[in-house]
Each structure stands twice: as C-alpha cells, then as structure tokens.
Design a protein around this nucleic acid. Structure first.
Lengths: 366, 366
DNA sequence: GTGAAAGCGCTAACAA
DNA sequence: TTGTTAGCGCTTTCAC
C-alpha cells in the first residue's frame, strides 16, 4: 500500500530541492522551466522530482503568475445537445493550445449564471465563454470585463457589452425558410420559443435575445417580401417545459384560424411540438408543416424525417475558444471571428397547405 | 467608465483593513466570518469592504484551508443527455449544500480522463465524481484516493477500487426485458454496445464494464431460464460512431440466421440502430423488435414509440453528490447509498417474431 | 548559474 | 477582543 497515509503533506519544491541538493530557487526554475539552470542541476532536480513523485501546486503557481491556463465556460442547459456539441468544439480547440476547460451549467437561471461567473472568476480562469441566458441583467458580465479577463459570448450578444461574439446570423436563413413555407401555401406560420418575456409578442416588439429576434425578423421580412402580413398572433414566447409546449401547440392548432405550420426555436421545444401534433392525431406534413432549429440526430428518425435549420455548432465552439485564447495571449489585439451561416435542410416535414392546390414541390436545398 | 483601468491590482484584506483602521487579522476575521470580532469592528470592516468592492481571493483561501467548496465532475460524453440529466442532479444537490460544481468532458478518451482528473485535483476540488470510461487503466483514480480526497464513481464501478459507487443494477431489468422478448418468440436477440474490447464477445468473457456486464448477464440468465442458449454471436462490442452502428445493424439483420430483435446499450447506439433498420426498409416491430437503454425524450416521437429501459438518472446524480459531500464533511464515515432500480417501459417497439404464432401481447409494465 | 529573501492574499497560532 | 507573526507553495527580484 503506497498510499496508506492519506494525510501526508504534499511534496513541494523545497523537498525536491533538498533531495537534489540545490536551492529552492534552482529547483523551482528547473521544474517550472524558466530562468537559467545548468544541465547538471536540471537533471538532478528532475530525477528527484520523479522519485518523490512531485506534482506542482497549480494554485500556488496561479497565485503568483495570475495565469491558470484554464478557460471557463458557462452554458444554460447542458442537456441540450446544441451546447454539448459546442463544448466539444471548445474543448478540442483549447486542448490544442494547452488550455484546460471547466464548465458550469446554470439551468437557464440568471442567478445561477451570476454565481457561475463569480466562481470561475474566483478560480482565476484566464478567460470566459458564456452562452448567456436572455435577461436584462448584465452586471456579472460587466464584472468579467472589469476584471480584465477576456470574455466571449456564445450564441447571443448582449446589448451595451463590447466583447467578441460568436453566433450565426439567423435572419437570412429564417427569411429563406419562411419563404419556403409561404411558397408551399402557408400563411398561418407559428413560432414557439422558450424566451422569457413579460408581455405577449407584438409586431415590432424589442426582443432581447438576438437569435430569437433574428428568427422573427427573418420571418417578418419573408412575409413582407410575399406581400402578406406577419401573423404575430402565432408567435408564442415563454414556452417552458415539454408539457407547456404541448399545450401551446394544441392551442395553436385549434380555433377558427389555426396555424398550418409551426417553427420550433430549439430542440427542446421541438420535442413538445411534435408530441403535441401527434397527440392530436394530426400528421406531418399533411395536416401541419414543421420546421425546427438545430440538426439533432433524432430528427432523422421520425416519420417523416424533420426539416431543420442547421448551424455549425462545433465550429462555432472552436471559434469561440480560438478567439478567447487569442485575446488571452495578445491582450488588446482584436480577434478575427469568422462568419457562420445556417442552412435549411429540408427533409420532409414541410408540405403543401392542406386543401391548397398541390403544386408544391421542395425546392432544392443549396 | 468605472472599469477603465483593467490592470488594477485586486483589493485585498490589507486594503480593507487599512480603510477600516484595524489590523489585517481583524479584517480577515470579519470578512471570513471566523474568530472573534467585536460588533463595532465587524461593521467598519464590512462597510470598508463594500465600498472598496472587495472580493476574497478564493485561491489564497483554498491554499490555506485546503478546502475549495467545489466538487469536480468528470464525464465521458456530455452530448449524451444521460449525463446532462445526471449533471443537473449533481448540481442541484451540491448547490443546496453550498458547493460549486465544475465539470470536465473527456470524449470517452482515457487520456483525457486522466488529464481531467489531474486538472481537478490540481485545482484542489474537495472531491470528485467520475463516470469512468471503461478501461483497464485506473492509476488516475487511485491517485485521487491517494490524495485523500473522496471519489464517487458514477454508472460503473472499477475493480479493485474501494470507493462509493452510484449505479443501477442492470441484471434484473435486463433479465426481465429479455424474458419479455423471448416470450414474444425471439431467440435471435442482438446486443450492441460501444464498449471497447480487444476480442469479440464470447459467452463467459470477462467484460470490464459493470453496466454492460450486467446487461449481458441478465440476457444470459433469461435465456437460461427459458431453456434456450444465449446467442453470443449476436453481441457486438466496439461500436463507434453512428455510421459504424448502422453497419453493424445491417450486418446483424442479414445472413441465414439474422437477429429478430436488437437491444441498444445507450442512446447513441440507438440512433444508429434505428437508422440502420429504416435504411433497410424494415419496420419496427413487424420486421424487427427494438429495445434501448435510457428513456430519452425523442424515443416517444418515432413511429412506433420505442420501448426503453429507464433509469432514475437525475436521482442518481443527486445521490452521488450527496454521498460525496457526506464523505467530504465527515471523512471516514461510510455513506449510505440508496439502491436504484431500472424499469422496462414497453412502448411499442417490441413485437412478436415475424412468422411466429401471433399470440404475443404486451405484458403490463409494473 | 546560483542562492537568499521578498512577495502573492489569505488563515491560523500565539501573545497581549 | 485584538494585533503580531508565521506560514501555505510557488515565482521572482536582486545580489553574488
């Protein structure tokens, strides 16, 4: 049993120095790989370290240097594969540059997000990537900037915060997708999002979350292009768990002027929408057309497979990490962030409106 | 602009002490909430801290106390909702006890897992929860124990490592589910797992991953119960990405003695299996029956909805955190870990074997 | 090249 | 109740 004494003190540079018969400073230099050390001393020190199985105390190191070689990531919902994939992009890119990545999940709660940012700053991460929950509060993010450590926002930008943002512009793809739906005869196109909002949506309302605002703007533009008016009564915010989405879906599909197509703003909403449609005994796309954001693996398994708007999430994660590391290594230098574009993948859940002339055929995806 | 000078030194206890006209020690006591401080001094110190917007340096604090009030979590694949849900259970429980949680994702790579453990130990987390990738290597986990910090394993146990394990015993539910399949006339039941293995599976082989071993043992027992022999030629390990699973599935369904039922050992494998079945133009459950582990949200959206084996993942996460925190707070005291049981949720992907007498009807789930 | 000594920001033992 | 003093383990002057 080599580890019988759990309460043993960690071995320190001093121990190594003693064993190698050199000064603490020399041992530290050899171990840390800085300063000037003779070959002879270096070897003795490394050998001693090896045999004592010395491990540097990163905390002490960080305290002195101020650098931790760690980047912190804060996301709202790690159960959403969207963030899982982004996380992989971030990790891969960071690892390639010798940075460790630690993540904190907030459950889409602004208080938890504030805590998470505080914890990571306290742990002296070298920089942060935050996928901020949509909320007017931004004090915690301003505090990051004030601390002097770089911040990169993921997915949404925050008004009045001059930091790098990695996101896909959704306006164009939304416009194009909506045009596709309109082309198929739809005018009653609904949009469901979990975005929290005090008031119901109205046309021209200032939507605080950039990606949602862009999706809505794209829809609005497409309706304008087609000479129709945007059915803003079919925009539903504040969708919560899956059950509430099911309810909203059923509500949208009932009544005198039901929706003929539904757009889900993310994978979680999509689950509820499809379930809602199914429980009403309706078929996609015969009775109602369906479109969702994010190309999740399961969307190919339903019947019909679902049409989705796909974003290069992995690449976005990698780009976020790259931009952050750039900022860390060359403070003050503006980092170049690539443009990302989302594309419509039209699988089979968009169909002609029920009862309309059935001249609709899919236009090819680019 | 309040944060114009990004390069300003952080404000320390010394600064606060000076402002409050007390000694550094008194300021530290007041701020840290330990020792004895008069009401007068406490107020002056807190006021000074407030006005200087003092933030304690957690690193320095951790260096002295050895405690970080942080627990580290290491998982293989955060894209798998299984771990996302577990993570929420862990976070919720930890937060309730005042612990922060940081996570590192390893991509099912043993080297990354080793690194992750090292990083977290270096950051001086108070304890670790690890969902270990199945691998013979366990040096990194032994190092955790040697460091004196508690470790809780999630999902799988590791041979020769005497630590708390939070897992669901899969033997019984596997046996029962397999019996269900056999009852429906199936004898050619396949099992696909991503578990890495040097050699193909053979009956009686020592499978290193507990949950997979249990699944297989349950199957074997059920076949034994029914007086049939276990078709070990239909057990496929080393499944990789989705494409490879599709290939394995197609292989299993071809040939002179094809599988009539397929069991997927996790959600990722399941995606490939269903896709494989669909691309062959076969129907579930008419042509082939299907069963998978983990009750993921999308399993209700396929046609038919998929039969699954459900584990209380959130509760398991919470229990892991509870056990770990117990160990942190009362070292040496053995923590009581509840038993978890998985249940078969028979939705609609298990049917009678093609061509057999169609007397099969679902037996009710408990 | 080398070593002694002064920090980093905090806690904790010891006196007063 | 207070203040003084020593650390925690490392990096980093600054002399030699």
């Amino acid at each position: 049993m080599t580890h019988s004494s759990a309460r043993r003190r960690d071995v320190t540079v001093a121990d190594v120095a003693k064993a190698a018969l050199v000064s603490k400073a020399q041992a530290a230099r050899a171990l840390g790989g800085y300063g000037a050390v003779s070959e002879d001393v270096r070897e003795r020190v490394l050998a001693a370290a090896e045999s004592l199985s010395y491990r540097p105390n990163e905390l002490a190191r960080t305290m002195n240097t101020g650098k931790s070689h760690t980047i912190g990531v804060v996301v709202g919902d790690i159960e959403n594969p969207h963030f899982g994939l982004a996380m992989r992009g971030i990790s891969d890119r960071a690892k390639a540059s010798g940075f460790d990545v630690i993540l904190i999940n907030t459950g889409e709660d602004i208080r938890a997000e504030t805590d998470a940012v505080r914890v990571l700053l306290d742990k002296r991460v070298d920089g942060l990537i935050v996928a901020p929950v949509s909320s007017p509060e931004k004090g915690h993010l301003e505090r990051v900037c004030a601390s002097g450590r770089p911040l990169v926002l993921f997915d949404r930008k925050v008004d009045g915060l001059d930091v790098d943002v990695v996101a896909t512009d959704m306006t164009e793809v939304s416009r194009k997708s909506t045009a596709e739906l309109i082309h198929a005869g739809h005018e009653r196109i609904a949009f469901i999002s979990t975005l929290k909002s005090q008031e119901p949506f109205w046309n021209g309302m200032d939507v605080s979350s950039t990606p949602i605002a862009e999706r809505l703007k794209g829809m609005s533009l497409a309706f304008h292009d087609a000479g129709h008016s945007f059915p803003s009564d079919l925009v539903r915010l504040n969708a919560g768990n899956s059950d509430s989405v099911v309810g909203i879906t059923q509500d949208l599909l009932r009544g005198p002027a039901p929706a003929t197509a539904i757009v889900a703003s993310d994978g979680l909403v999509a689950l509820g929408v499809v379930e809602g449609i199914q429980t009403m005994g309706l078929s996609i796309p015969q009775d109602v057309s369906f479109l969702m954001y994010d190309d999740l693996a399961w969307t190919r398994l339903t019947n019909p497979p679902l049409s989705v708007i796909s974003q290069p999430v992995y690449d976005m994660g990698a780009a976020a990490a790259a931009a952050l590391i750039q900022r860390i290594q060359r403070p003050g230098v503006k980092s170049e962030i690539p443009e990302f574009t989302a594309t419509l993948i039209n699988r089979g859940s968009i169909g002609a409106v029920r009862g309309a002339a059935s001249c609709y055929s899919l236009s090819e995806s680019p």
